[in-house]
Design a protein around this nucleic acid. Structure first.
Lengths: 250, 250
DNA sequence: GCGGCCGGGTGCGGTACCGCACATACGGAG
DNA sequence: CTCCGTATGTGCGGTACCGCACCCGGCCGC
């Protein structure tokens, strides 16, 4: 009874914000091809260089796009939740990317075959418009990550990362180890431990063996680098006028 | 007489590889609207947040996309030369980005009004296809930059950066100060000085007050991190089958 | 040919992070 | 309740880079 997930849940494609922003007709065309899927923590959705055959529209799961270097070190380049879609290379035309997509927080996503995706994309209606705008938001996130990696401390980046995750999950608790976070940020686990215990001592968060609860979100935002706010603002700007398009033809 | 630029030069839109890959009819439609422009070192093509009104197709100039943070520190997130176009937000639908575009190496570019760009883009032919593929290549470059910023040393990154610049310029000489390079990489000028003088002592490059000449490209590639090769390989993959499309309808 | 400016060289102390080694303790499985 | 795997805490020496201060000297303009 400590989480809602033990209760009966209802699922609907429009819980994903991209799908939810589509006009009725467009969503109706896609709906028969959307397959609800449960994604467990750590599942690799795409491996670097794999040819993609489908895309995923998360609802309550979070998927990280991770770069893995030759020596095994890694860095997260962006994170995708209900606001987005994993597998943009399928409509951008590349069929694969050199990054890995891995489930960072267990949950659900709707899977869509590449062929169906492209059929709707190629109608050049709301779906097309929406996916390109989302891609631009994703680009902003990657660019900000690049700059953030260069200039900001682990303390700041941990705050940014917690905020990005919080925005994509229900409730105020995240299920993930510090080791995992370290892999995402591309830093040592001990560095995350230190940063996290500072936050805990200050009463900003509270954690125990793989669970993190946010206690003071405002303070978290204050301690974060500007990168969180910049990405959020730009994402909101790019996605806000979906409503306008939803009224047009699909 | 120390550079070729004092001689009579010929300019043609197809010197830009994206324009050059277009089928005849498509290029013919765009050509009347393409304006050749000379871009001087340091010119700011777009400022962060500016509404874009045109895009630029470089021929022999190089334009850097730079993130500038609140405290003034900066980091290059990608670089665009004759293989690409500056201003993707215009066709992706966002109209602006939070990054600055600045001329990193003087030269020429063809300017195209946003309206004309969109008209051709919205025909959903070769131009549309080509620009989306290019955008994916750009995304790869940004992602690699993010990871590179996290894990690689200044020495490695300087090599990567020199190689990326060399690929976009005619000849074996670059005109740029170490201060400028430092801004691009987001590091101290002294750090670049040290890395560069190591390369000079080893006979890999040779420089004097704002001019860098590459003497041993193979060695430069050896000393670079993997990031250069990864980006190059993926770029080539994404752009190679332009020819296929050029034969189809424009 | 001379002065000044700007690009580059060098040294110094400080810090953030690394890699490693090992201690501790939570909390699920039995 | 006990055991044990694994998540987390901590310390230590090393390094890459930072910010600053200052010098040097090529090169341009007069």
């Amino acid at each position: 009874m400590h989480t809602a997930s033990s209760m009966k849940e209802s699922h609907d494609p429009s819980q994903n914000l991209l799908l939810g922003a589509l006009p009725r007709e467009a969503l109706a065309r896609l709906e028969p091809a959307l397959v609800l899927e449960r994604l467990e923590l750590g599942t690799v959705v795409y491996e670097s260089g794999d040819v993609m055959n489908e895309v995923y529209f998360p609802t309550d799961s979070i998927i990280s796009l991770l770069y893995v270097m030759e020596d095994g070190r890694s860095a997260e380049i962006s994170v995708v939740g209900r606001e987005g879609v994993v597998g943009i290379a399928l409509f951008m035309g590349g069929e694969s990317t050199p990054s890995r997509a891995i489930v960072q927080s267990a949950g659900h996503a709707y899977r869509l075959k590449g062929q169906k995706l492209r059929a709707e994309f190629d109608r050049h209606g709301a779906f097309h418009h929406l996916l390109l705008r989302y891609t631009q938001a994703l680009i902003t996130q990657m660019a900000q990550t690049a700059a953030c990696n260069r200039h900001h401390t682990i303390d700041q980046q941990l705050c940014r990362w917690l905020l990005l995750s919080m925005d994509r999950v229900n409730g105020d608790e995240l299920t993930m180890t510090q080791e995992l976070i370290a892999n995402m940020l591309g830093v040592r686990r001990e560095g995350v431990t230190e940063a996290a215990s500072k936050l805990q001592r200050s009463g900003v968060i509270e954690y125990r063996r793989g669970h993190i609860r946010i206690l003071d979100r405002a303070e978290l935002e204050r301690r974060s680098c500007e990168c969180y706010a910049v990405v959020k603002r730009e994402s909101d700007r790019l996605m806000q006028d979906q409503a306008v398009w939803s009224k047009d033809s699909g």
